[in-house]
């Protein structure tokens, strides 16, 4: 606490301000700070004092022409609401109900304690020996290797990227003005077969290639569902070297995972 910059309220408590706005991550952080400063039990916050200090702080932010985030104002109104609730005399007529009634501060206290927990966790996290800050390893970024590593979970990550890519393909197809009424039925099974034929003997096919022939939106949608189905059946692998990069569809060779990785490292590397 020797660092006076971090002090919101100096010893004089209400008069001397020495603040550093960035020090507070949000209203909860500010509240925690105020409570610590006044050295009170977090479970028994003197709501009037803390509310006053909190409002003074917001006032100060205004004076300094800082944009007050809405979150700070929401908290201010919460504090005032709690304060007014506590001023109301407890109703005596129904004692059973009264016992169930919570201290109006309870929810706030819970949030503060919870926040404090994660704030401390964040500090522990930041104190670790971070790669790229405290410790270094051989070429950390190896996306091309990483994406080719057999990883069961990787599909989950790709799904959203896959949908995004599909959206882009779909956007290329003009919304057709209809001239033919009969519905063309394209089965997903047909598209699965088409895709498998396309993949035959090839190492990989790009996502865009699958849709190269163009076609109706129905066809595209059937193709997309076919790819998802093939992924589910573990018959193809969908990989992407970099985000927003080309998405590759490759036949999944069950026992060939090692072969794949080796291919990726590739000739000419040694």
């Amino acid at each position: 606490m020797a660092n006076s910059q971090n002090r919101l309220f100096a010893e004089g408590d209400q008069t001397a301000y020495n603040i550093k706005i960035e020090a507070f991550e949000g209203p909860l952080d500010l509240l925690l700070h105020l409570i610590k400063k006044s050295e009170v039990d977090i479970c028994n916050i003197p709501i009037a004092t803390v509310t006053r200090q909190y409002l003074e702080y917001i006032e100060l932010m205004k004076e300094l022409n800082l944009d007050i985030a809405g979150d700070f104002l929401v908290m201010a109104s919460t504090l005032i609401q709690i304060k007014s609730k506590m001023l109301l005399p407890a109703s005596n007529d129904d004692e059973a109900v009264e016992e169930d009634e919570e201290d109006p501060r309870a929810e706030l206290v819970r949030r503060l304690l919870e926040y404090q927990k994660y704030k401390e966790a964040a500090m522990t996290l930041g104190g670790r020996e971070l790669l790229g800050r405290d410790t270094f390893a051989r070429k950390f970024e190896a996306p091309e290797l990483k994406s080719l590593q057999p990883e069961e979970e990787s599909l989950e990550i790709e799904l959203f990227e896959l949908i995004e890519a599909f959206r882009r393909v779909l956007a290329k197809v003009p919304v057709q003005s209809f001239h033919e009424v009969g519905a063309e039925s394209i089965s997903i099974a047909d598209r699965i077969n088409d895709i498998l034929t396309l993949l035959q003997g090839k190492e990989a096919v790009t996502f865009d290639e699958l849709f190269a022939e163009g076609g109706t939106r129905e066809l595209l949608i059937a193709s997309f569902l076919a790819i998802l189905e093939l992924c589910k059946l573990k018959m193809v692998k969908v990989v992407q070297a970099a985000s927003f990069g080309t998405i590759l569809i490759m036949p999944a060779v069950p026992e060939g995972e090692e072969g794949l990785t080796e291919d990726a490292v590739g000739p000419g590397r040694y």
């Binding site: 209203p27 909860l28 979150d71 949030r111 926040y115 994660y118 966790a121 964040a122 500090m123």
Partner: peptide
């Protein structure tokens, strides 16, 4: 760090849950 900590400890977690815990957008 705060956001990462919340996600690390509470995952799977939604944005609304994170914002409730942090009190900010």
């Amino acid at each position: 760090l705060e956001t990462l900590a919340i996600i690390a400890y509470r995952q799977p977690v939604t944005r609304a849950e994170i914002e409730y815990l942090r009190g900010v957008d």
